[in-house]
Every structure is written in structure tokens, then in C-alpha cells.
């Protein structure tokens, strides 16, 4: 089985190769890269290309590894036991599988996306090591073991907010999504806005790459911002763009107050444009 990208998700050769590695070796695929380079979308593309259902686990700063496996709602059980109108003897009714548990228990193969793993506590990835390695875990309350019948395809994204532990990294296939070069970017734009005026795309790309090379920016615009911006331009029916003039919908590209300020100082002689 080889991954080739989908109609709406263009990939580079090395990314395809990394996905193939992860599929063949049945290891988790760790994806890093600048925000907005399509890390999360990759999981959707993989799920679409392979025809497996996608399960998503959005990791938050409060997420615990246990939440991904299963949650035992003890309070609900205690509460139900007070009024004697529920059968509380069956503990299974109070066990809920998390995304990882669901992917293991499923009858068919799933694609599991663990999104932004670096958001959680430092210990979070370490706590998942064994489960991801062996693809099985034990529910302590019922002494039942959940073993993955079909090992899910695990895709993990990280924004580099925290370093991941070495032991975890060793078990992953790693890929760093580079910022697309102009040629690839043009193809990406074409996929998203197929009928856009070519001259406008040319100008927008020029402006975009000039903005990216403008070093005073705190947050450089990325692919998703360019795509959004082009959508706005398309909707407004504009025909031409210039970096030194009032740039329309600049708010779609620059998201920080300081960046807007720096931009207006550098390109518009201090006049503030309407975002």
C-alpha cells in the first residue's frame, strides 16, 4: 500500500516516503513543521487515501494519557447508586473508551490523529509509550485487556512547544514539513482556487513571499493564510495588487498587532490600513 496524496492534499516525495515507512513498519508518524503547513490535514488525507475512518484526539494542556484509553466515571456510578433506579452492578456502563481505546477496539483499521501532542504535560508522551508500542492496554476496573485487532495508523503532530522525550522519538517515524517552495505553493493554490485569475495569483504570490522574507514579523504568514487571503481576494473581485499600496484584507495574512504595525511602517509610510 503506497500513499500518494489526494486531489486536495499535495505532498512532497519525502513526505510520501515517510508515510509509507510508517505504514509498512506500523510505527506512529510524527509530523512537525511551521504552523499552517498542513500537519493536521495530512491525517485527513491519509484516512481518505486509505479509506479508513479517522479518529481525532485533540490534546490539551489538561489532557492525560489515561483519557485517551478510557475514563471510568465513578461519580456517576456513585450518584446512580443513591436512588436505586439504575443497575450499577455493571461497571462497564460507566467505562467510556477514549480515542486511542476506540481505535484499538474497532473491528476495522482506523487512522488515529493525536493532534498537538506537545500541548500536554511533559510526561504525556512517555505514558503512551507502551500502549503505542504494543497496541494493547488493560482496563484495571474490569481486568479486561483491549488488544488492537487491526493496528491503527497513528499520526502525531507537534508544534514544538515542548521537547518530546527521546524514548518516545525513537519509536516514531519523523517528518518535518518544510515550507513549500514557489512551484509547490502554486500547485497548492491551484488545488484550492482552480479558477483564479493567473495575474492575480502571480501578484499575490509575490506579495506573500515578500512578506515572508520581511524579517521584522513575529509570525510569518503560512500556506493556510495565503489560501484564506486568496479566497477573500476572489470574493472581492479585485484585479491587481501591490505591496506598497493599501493591501486589501491584510488581516488575513498578519495576525499580530505588532506585525501590522511593522508592516505599515515599512510599506505604507506609517498609515494604518483597515484590516
Amino acid at each position: 500500500m503506497r500513499f500518494k496524496g489526494t486531489d486536495s492534499y499535495l505532498t512532497s516525495e519525502s513526505l510520501r516516503s515517510a508515510v509509507d515507512c510508517a505504514l509498512a513498519l506500523q510505527r506512529p508518524l510524527l509530523i512537525k513543521g511551521e504552523p499552517g503547513t498542513g500537519k493536521t490535514l495530512l491525517a485527513e488525507a491519509v484516512s481518505q487515501a486509505l479509506g479508513h475512518e479517522l479518529l481525532t484526539w485533540h490534546v490539551k494542556s489538561t489532557s492525560k494519557a489515561q483519557d485517551g484509553l478510557y475514563v471510568y466515571d465513578a461519580v456517576q456510578r456513585l450518584h446512580d447508586s443513591r436512588f436505586n433506579d439504575h443497575d450499577v452492578r455493571d461497571i462497564k456502563k460507566y467505562l467510556r473508551l477514549g480515542p486511542l481505546g476506540e481505535a484499538f477496539a474497532a473491528k476495522s483499521r482506523k487512522v488515529l490523529l493525536i493532534d498537538e501532542i506537545d500541548k500536554a504535560d511533559l510526561e504525556f508522551p512517555n505514558d503512551l509509550l507502551h500502549e503505542l508500542d504494543r497496541m494493547r492496554f488493560r482496563i484495571v476496573e474490569t481486568d479486561e485487556e483491549i488488544v488492537a485487532k487491526e493496528r491503527p495508523v497513528v499520526i502525531i503532530t507537534s508544534n514544538n512547544e515542548k521537547d518530546l522525550p527521546d524514548a518516545f522519538l525513537r519509536r516514531c517515524v519523523f517528518h518535518f514539513i518544510e515550507f513549500p517552495d514557489q512551484a509547490l505553493m502554486r500547485r497548492i493554490v491551484e488545488v484550492h482556487h482552480p479558477k483564479l485569475d493567473e495575474a492575480l495569483v502571480d501578484q499575490a504570490m509575490t506579495v506573500f513571499y515578500e512578506l515572508r522574507s520581511f524579517t521584522r514579523l513575529r509570525k510569518r504568514p503560512s500556506t493556510s493564510e495565503l489560501v484564506d487571503w486568496l479566497a477573500a481576494l476572489k470574493a472581492s473581485g479585485l484585479k491587481s495588487l501591490k505591496l506598497d499600496e493599501q493591501l486589501p484584507f491584510i488581516g488575513a495574512l498578519l495576525k499580530r498587532e505588532q506585525d501590522l504595525q511593522a508592516f505599515s511602517e515599512a510599506f505604507q509610510g506609517g498609515r494604518r490600513s483597515k484590516a
Binding site: A18, C21, L25, R170, V173
Partner: peptide, 10 residues
């Protein structure tokens, strides 16, 4: 491509 995906972790 394969070696880079498997040997580099960061």
C-alpha cells in the same frame, strides 16, 4: 527519504 524519516527525530 526513508533513512531521513527513520533516523532523524528532530
Amino acid at each position: 527519504d526513508v533513512a531521513r524519516a527513520l533516523l532523524c527525530h528532530s
